[in-house]
Design a protein around this nucleic acid. Structure first.
Length: 274
DNA sequence: CGGCGGTCCTGTCAGC
DNA sequence: TGCTGACAGGACCGCC
């Protein structure tokens, strides 16, 4: 899926076009996403005006008038693409379309249906089941080495699993976990609680750096991720370890390895990461 | 309780 | 060419 940078890129695209626009029509082509679409979603959304767009973790939030919030998660394969006009025909896996008064159409497309769309209100959002357990945002000014040290010390799990744990720290998925650990020179299988202060300092910096760089590049496009414009992101060209198994490390030239950790592929350089 | 593995679903690609 | 199995950016749930 889209990790934090991809979701942030989508939000920025939506924020450019949707605020102030009124939803005139809601097309539900398929309701069984990861969770079923809310009952009466159509009725609640129709006539609402988009106030602003925000992001929390990997969730896109469309803030509507009347205090309603449309929550969108892209899962592994989801996209929110904007069109200037409603399309003549929809593609397979275009599950929901929001048609605005000026014709602008936002299409939620998600082949694997791991994504979701839910409704909440500004009041209920913080205590919403999906949101109440989320950890801090790594790009917040208030997040840094102190916060990272605290979560690392509290767990013996592999450091990679810990930085991917959305309860401890949001937004870091498989790609950016691999990349950040490489940048910091930390071996992904190290028990989190034996990572030193010095290494944690590098890792906190690496996490911010790689997420910010990816946002700058419009995210990473591997298979089906696209920005709201429909364009691909470019950060995949900057990967230093992700997907580079058997290729030489860009720093030391030794071979990049791939292992499985909790069912996910981990790419790393055994020489540069200790 | 923490941590891991299985699971949801479809598409794609490598290998036979 | 065609089939089969493995794997893919996430995250919930249940089991140990």
């Amino acid at each position: 899926m889209p990790e934090l940078p991809e979701v942030e890129t989508v939000c920025r695209g939506l924020a450019l076009h949707l605020p102030g626009k009124k939803i005139m029509q809601v097309i539900l082509r398929r309701k069984d996403l990861r969770l079923p679409l809310p009952l009466h979603m159509e009725k609640i959304l129709k006539g609402r005006v988009v106030q602003h767009i925000s992001r929390r973790a990997k969730y896109i939030l469309l803030h509507l008038d009347g205090g309603h919030v449309l929550i969108v998660h892209l899962g592994m394969s989801g996209a929110m693409v904007l069109k200037e006009r409603p399309p003549e025909t929809y593609r397979t896996h275009d599950h929901v379309a929001l048609i605005f008064k000026d014709g602008t159409t936002a299409i939620f497309h998600d082949p694997r249906r791991f994504g979701l769309m839910l409704l909440a209100t500004e009041k209920t959002l913080p205590s919403h089941k999906l949101f109440s357990h989320l950890g801090p945002e790594p790009l917040d000014k208030s997040w840094g080495v102190t916060q990272l040290c605290a979560i690392l010390q509290s767990s013996k799990a592999p450091v990679k699993s810990v930085i991917m744990d959305q309860q401890k720290l949001v937004g870091v998925g498989n790609i950016y976990a691999c990349e950040a650990l490489f940048l910091a020179g930390v071996h992904p299988t190290r028990p989190a609680n034996i990572v030193t202060k010095n290494e944690a300092t590098k890792l906190a910096k690496a996490i911010k750096q790689v997420l910010n760089a990816a946002i700058e590049s419009g995210g990473s496009t591997l298979r089906d991720y696209v920005r709201s414009s429909g364009d691909a992101g470019y950060f995949q060209h900057h990967f230093k370890v992700y997907g580079r198994q058997k290729l030489p490390c860009l720093i030391c030239k030794k071979t990049i390895l791939v292992i499985r950790q909790s069912g996910r592929s981990t790419f790393f350089c055994a020489h540069c990461q200790k």
